[in-house]
Design a protein around this nucleic acid. Structure first.
Lengths: 239, 239
DNA sequence: CGCTTAATTGACCATAATCAACCAGGGTGG
DNA sequence: CCACCCTGGTTGATTATGGTCAATTAAGCG
């Protein structure tokens, strides 16, 4: 049932019916996972990868003093650990931030796809390349952007990605992350996230009540973030 | 002639002679490029990818105020923009930090590899996954590591990667980067890089004269960095 | 209603940036 | 051969962004 995944991939290079079947065959029935659980633990060598069907999770690595850094926020339709097919053991963990529905895809089945479906393989490869591009943007953010710009960029990224899978409309979406988790995503303390959020609100850029985000001035937010969505490969590409 | 590349890939999954041939056929004769030139410019859509045969270059993205963030240092044997095969246009640039020898591989030839050589394709895919893992480590560094730990981690990473292609022995290697370039890699100012380097020297962790780096206390440097080399996939993996 | 988690705010501190000199080495032209 | 210059390295003084600690309020939830 990885419909959001199929939707996302086929935007980048139309999927043939055999390819859709191959993907469906590779994925097992959905499983529900509560919030705060590791979908994959660091240093594990899983024999399957996981498609996120609903909910939010995060790739993270922890340091010895307990500090934690997220390296990506994963949303519906993301293959959260496709790379575990070729990278063993895992160099990081994946934790659910909300209750999630997921579907496993055994590495055996995925390997078969790489042998029989070169075009689909390129699309999956491309999906992992986009993960890398997201990493690079985050890296530019923590390395060189101001706290405010970094926050703005994260919101732009999430808005666009959520829109692709129908979870954001008119720049309104649900974002069930705590400020502490946002801090782990941006390399900031929870306290500072709170102050930056206050700044964004004061500037009239967005509303954020509970888990409901509404971007009020998309143009200005994009400006502040220097957001260029090209890296998310939204246009049809020759895969 | 991408021998360092072949060497690196075959460590991860032995290459058959037909695969080696396919790689050699795909790469064109070497070209020399002076320092400070873009191998790929941001937003370009190249029709070939580039293997670095010798020298150092860096992936970067620049912000409007001129600040620059490197997202990876590339060394001999790296496919600096393999991802341009599937990501168009480029989301970042690649600049030579020293004079470099490079070989182009046309996207046509690479695409043929993806159609005819599933195993080699997986190895190339894996190489891009390792780039992503390097990005993640850098992200953890700028997000959560101290300046000193970040510096130490970069040196550990480079030492290990250089050793794989025979450019580091007994923790001695050439690193022809300026302190300003190191700053771009670590998200720090050149001045601060200088002070951190002084700290590392004072601690007796390394010598660094000119471009010659010698790590004096590998164990302690690894400790300081919390360096876990697994993400570089040095062990034979079932690709 | 009480308990727990998350958000908010303030005071103070630390890491690293910025600004500004100054020094060292290597290459160039006279 | 040497003066000059340019780049890169080194150091000091000052500033700023963001972290830490601590207390308070708000919001869910059984």
């Amino acid at each position: 049932m990885p419909n959001a995944l199929i939707e996302k991939l086929s935007r980048r290079g139309p999927l043939g019916p055999d390819e859709v079947d191959a993907l469906r065959d590779a994925t097992e029935p959905p499983i529900c996972v509560p919030a705060g659980q590791d979908l994959v633990r660091p240093h594990e060598s899983p024999s399957h990868s996981t498609v996120l069907l609903s909910g939010f999770c995060a790739r993270y690595t922890s340091l010895s003093d307990g500090r934690r850094q997220f390296t990506e926020i994963n949303i519906m339709g993301d293959f959260v650990d496709l790379h575990s097919l070729l990278m063993q053991p895992m160099d990081h963990g994946v934790v659910t931030l909300t209750p999630c529905r997921v579907a496993h895809a055994s590495h055996g089945a995925l390997r078969r796809i790489t042998q029989q479906h070169p075009h689909l393989t390129r699309l999956l490869w491309q999906d992992t390349l986009i993960d890398a591009a997201i990493h690079r943007q985050w890296l530019v953010g923590v390395g060189r952007r101001s706290g405010l710009g970094r926050f703005a960029h994260l919101l732009c990224e999430l808005d666009v990605r959520l829109a692709v899978v129908g979870q954001s409309e008119n720049h309104r979406f649900q974002l069930p992350l705590t400020q502490s988790e946002l801090g782990d995503a941006m390399g900031l303390s929870a306290v500072h996230v709170n102050r930056l959020l206050a700044d964004l609100r004061r500037e009239g850029l967005l509303q954020w009540q509970g888990q409901r985000v509404r971007i009020l001035d998309w143009e200005r937010l994009v400006d502040l973030a220097e957001f260029e969505p090209g890296y998310l490969q939204l246009a049809q590409a020759p895969a």
